[in-house]
Structures are given as C-alpha cells and as structure tokens.
Amino acid sequence: MAWNEPGGKNNDPWKNRGGRDQGPPDLDDVFKNLFGKFGKMGGGKGGSGKSVGKFGILLVIGLLVVIWIISGFYTIREAERGVVLRFGEYYQQVEPGLRWKPTFIDSVIPVDVQSIRDQASSGSMLTEDENVVRVQMEMQYRVVDPYRWTYAVADPQTSLSQALDSAIRYVVGHSTMDNVLTDGREATRQRVWEELQAILEPYDLGVSIIDMNFRDARPPEEVKDAFDDAIAAQEDEQRFIREAEAYAREIEPRARGQANRMNEEAQAYKEQIILEAQGEVARFEELLPQYNKAPQVTRDRIYLETMESIFSRTSKILVDTKNGNNMMYLPLDKMMDKQNSTAPVRSRSTLEGLQNPIEIESPNSTTNSPGLRNDSFRDGRR
C-alpha cells in the first residue's frame, strides 16, 4: 500500500523513523552524503578521499563551464541587427546569423530594421482662421540605426508620437480650415512631413520616415452638414471644369481639321479656277488668229460647237408642223423637273487682246459686229 493512500500513514518515509517524526531531508545533509560517497569510491580514508572530492568539484565546475558556453549562443534574424552591450555599455553591432556572447558579461538587444512601423496621431486643433477641425494622420517609418534607436532617447516610441503631434498642430495652426478640409490636404500632408523631419533631426533617433498619410480631417459635428455641402459644390465645380476641358480637347482638333480641310479645298479651287482661266485665255489666244483670217467660218464653227454642247444636256421635242395644227400635249411638269435637276451650264468666254466681248450669232445674222456675244448663244437666238 502506498504511503499516501488511505490507511497508509504509517508508511510515510519522512515519519516514524527512529521512533520520531521528521520532515524532508536537509540539502546540506544531501550534499554531505553525496561527497561522502565520492570519498568512499577511493576505497579508504585520508589523501585518496580528498583527491576524489576535488575531482567531484572539478567535474561540477566543468559542467557549469559547458552550460555557460552553451548558453552564450544566440541567433539574429535576417530582418534584425543586434546591439551588443558589455557590462551595460555599448560594445558593437552584429549582423544576422548565429552568434556567441559571454553570458553575464555581454547582453544583446535585437532591433528590427526592415519592417515598416506605423505611428498615428489625432486630435482637435485650431486653424489659422480660428476654426476647430479634427485631424487624423499616420506616419510610416523604419529604423536605420539600431544603436541610436535604442539609446538616443529614453522612449523612442513616445518621442515619435509627441513629435508627430507637435508637427500636425503647428501646420494646422498655420493653415485655414478650407485648405485642411478640401484642396489643400496634399500641401498640408507635405508640410507636416517636412516639419516632422525638422523636429526629429536634432534628436537623431536613427529612423527614416517612409510616408505620411492624411487619414481624415473633418469639421465639428455642429457644422458638418454645411461643410459637406460646400465640399460637394467644390467637387462639382472641379468635375464640370474637367468635363469642359475634355470637351474642348475633343472639339478643338476636329475644328482645326475642318479649318485645314476648308483651306485646302479653297486653295485647290483657287488653283483650279486659275488653271481654267489660263486654259480659256490660251484657247482664245489660239482662236484669235483664226478669227482674224476667217471671221465668218470661225463664227459658224463656234456657234455649232456651242449649240452641240447645249442640246446635248437638254431634252428635245420634235414637232411636225407640216401635217396640220394638231393639238399635242407637252409634259411640261416633267420637263421642268428635269431642267431644275440639271445644273445650268453657263459658258463665258473672253478673248484677251480684244477690246470688245465676242458676240456669237447665227451664220445668217446681218450684224457686222467685230466681236462675238455669248448672250445670243445662251438664248439660242439665230
């Protein structure tokens, strides 16, 4: 039966030994018994027992030395740098990897130098135009000097928080409410960044500011609705301006293209008219000598060519008047429609070198005019 089971009180190893109760053995007695056993291992008393006792002490010291050496190994992760202190004073900085330090002499503080840390600050602040706004900003930074980060100030996190809060309040205090809430937010963020760097520079905390985020800026709740309307109106204004600019960018190239096309068409028409006029002048210059040599023949030929050109583009109706005065129906409406759909042909010819316009008449005309007139041709008179 076990001594701690019911009814096993008499089996307690610490009681009823030698007729009296006793507690747990004393540690001094345990060590004395242990060293006594080491002494007996020599087989006798005297010098041999003392040598065996010294061997046991050396063995214990050797174990302690091994434990001390093993306890000195440590590892610095890839994203960290180690700050080594020797008797509490800065000694050196170690790189990542497996390292060893003398325990109780050196101590190592690992510092993360790759992770990006956040530090936020918020509060109600008074602007330059004496309005109250609530601003929330967040700073992102990274440690670049582990020693300065650890020992430049007593509490680097608190120092960063206070510096950020001071920079925000300074910039907001020198800005108007509209700039902080609307279109001046980016400028405010940049100014806070610059002011924070100026504040941290004398402390040399060993940090690098990566970014500054303007998380929120809003007016007091009592006037929030009015400011929301004002912001919406400004956003609408910017949207209309962008739409107008986009429309202008779309219309302007099209208008420029049309203007260029019209200029090119006008230039082409100008060249066409000039070439046609030059051709007419050249033709009449060739015609003038022939007219001077044979006026009647030339007049008849021009008359026939002109009539041929006119009748080739008009409708013709042949009426037989020799077989009686029969009434016949002429489709005047269709003839007029066809005439209206056909562009009128107008031939205007002049002869350079002639002082009077040429009048083209019938070969049997008795007019002895030195020139030719196109009006007679155009009316079809003989």
Rank of each mutant, 00 (worst) to 15 (best):
L34I: 11
L63D: 05
D28Q: 03
P295H: 13
N364W: 15
I302G: 13
Q162S: 06
S175R: 13
L27Q: 05
F38P: 06
T75H: 15
L351K: 05
T342K: 06
N263R: 06
A120D: 14
L58Y: 10
Y147Q: 11
K322E: 00
Q162L: 08
L288A: 11
N340D: 15
I76F: 02
D165T: 11
G279M: 12
G47M: 11
D229V: 01
P253F: 00
A2M: 07
G206D: 06
S309M: 09
L372Q: 03
Q22C: 11
W100M: 07
D112Q: 03
Y147V: 11
Y90G: 07
S369Y: 14
A277V: 12
L63K: 05
R117N: 10
G257Y: 01
A248P: 00
K224D: 01
M139A: 14
P102Y: 04
K9N: 14
I69D: 12
L205R: 11
F73S: 12
L58T: 07
K54A: 11
D300A: 13
I360M: 09
L27V: 10
G23M: 09
V345G: 12
A198V: 09
D228W: 06
F87R: 02
R381P: 07
T150A: 09
G7Y: 10
G47T: 08
S347P: 14
A277C: 09
R169I: 02
D204G: 08
A232W: 01
R373S: 10
G123F: 03
I210W: 02
T188R: 07
P6S: 14
Q22K: 12
D236P: 03
Q238K: 08
